[in-house]
């Protein structure tokens, strides 16, 4: 199996995001960057599938040279090689999906696995755009029935499974009020939800090996994609702050507040 996975560079989800006073962006100072957590789950799932069925995991990222850090992270986890689409400046989901479409057509994987959303934009769009652009099937929000503390998880069993004839994947999806199961003919696009797996840590030998793994450099121009954004971000602002609350000494005081002040019970 050949699997293409994505590795977007995003702000560390634990970091405090502050908007610049003029609303033109976020304060970059002191921020740490990581691979998008949902993408990391995608890398892990790709590695598990390849461990079971043989093949290759190719990781792709789009951005300036700093995204090589995220590519090296995925390579250290065990991905075989990397594709870097070198571009600085804003990109919207149409452009990103357009670039990924070209990379996919070039690499011809059986499966593309992406995070369901990136934790900066929170758009939750690229996988679906990509599937439509390619004319492929899609299974978004891939999850599994077993918990992250199950035996299957400890044994790193892939949750995305190949059908007996090897021509399709079976994916359990997290949807409203339950779990839906789909079977997608290969090639297909899968996007990951949180509970698909627990990504592995990169081992020291893995980190050493990653240094010599190849990173191929491409550009939007080389791929023939116009990346002029169709989404203009006019202004960023902070959400209205909640007014400071109070601590109450006991349950009787709480019920009194809820009944007489907030009037919600």
């Amino acid at each position: 199996m050949k699997i293409l996975v994505t590795a977007k560079r995003v702000e560390d989800p634990e970091s405090k995001i502050k908007v610049k006073p003029d609303g033109t962006g976020i304060v970059q100072e002191g921020l740490k960057y990581k691979i998008n957590p949902f993408d990391e789950i995608g890398v892990e799932e790709g590695l598990r599938l390849v461990a079971k069925h043989q093949g290759e995991v190719v990781v792709v990222s789009i951005g300036g040279k700093e995204v090589q850090e995220q590519l090296r992270h995925a390579l250290a986890m065990g991905a075989h090689r990397a594709v870097w689409v070198n571009h600085t400046g804003p990109l919207d989901q149409l452009a990103i999906a357009g670039l990924l479409q070209k990379v996919t057509e070039k690499e011809k994987p059986d499966l593309v696995i992406l995070g369901k959303q990136s934790i900066d934009d929170d758009q939750n769009q690229v996988g679906q755009y990509l599937a439509e652009f390619l004319g492929w099937g899609q299974a978004t929000f891939a999850s599994k029935v077993e918990s992250l503390e199950s035996e299957q998880e400890k044994n790193k069993v892939p949750a995305v499974t190949l059908t007996a004839d090897g021509k399709a994947v079976r994916v359990v999806r997290e949807v409203d009020n339950g779990l839906a199961t789909l079977e997608c003919q290969l090639p297909a696009v899968v996007t990951t939800d949180l509970r698909l797996n627990q990504p592995r840590y990169a081992s020291l030998p893995g980190i050493m090996k990653a240094k010599s793994k190849p990173i191929e450099e491409l550009t939007p121009a080389k791929l023939g994609v116009d990346v002029t954004p169709a989404i203009q971000v006019l202004k960023l602002s902070s959400p209205p702050a909640r007014k400071a609350g109070i601590k109450v000494p006991d349950v009787a005081a709480l019920v009194d507040k809820l009944h007489n002040e907030a009037k919600v019970v």
Binding site: L94, N124, Q128, Y129, Q138, T140, V175, I231
Partner: peptide, 23 residues
């Protein structure tokens, strides 16, 4: 922005070559 809305609308947008705003 239900599970179905999030799954479906980007695919509709792609078909219409349109930009999309989520949530």
């Amino acid at each position: 922005s239900t599970a179905q809305g999030k799954d479906l609308m980007p695919r509709v947008a792609a078909r219409l070559k349109s930009a999309m705003a989520t949530d």
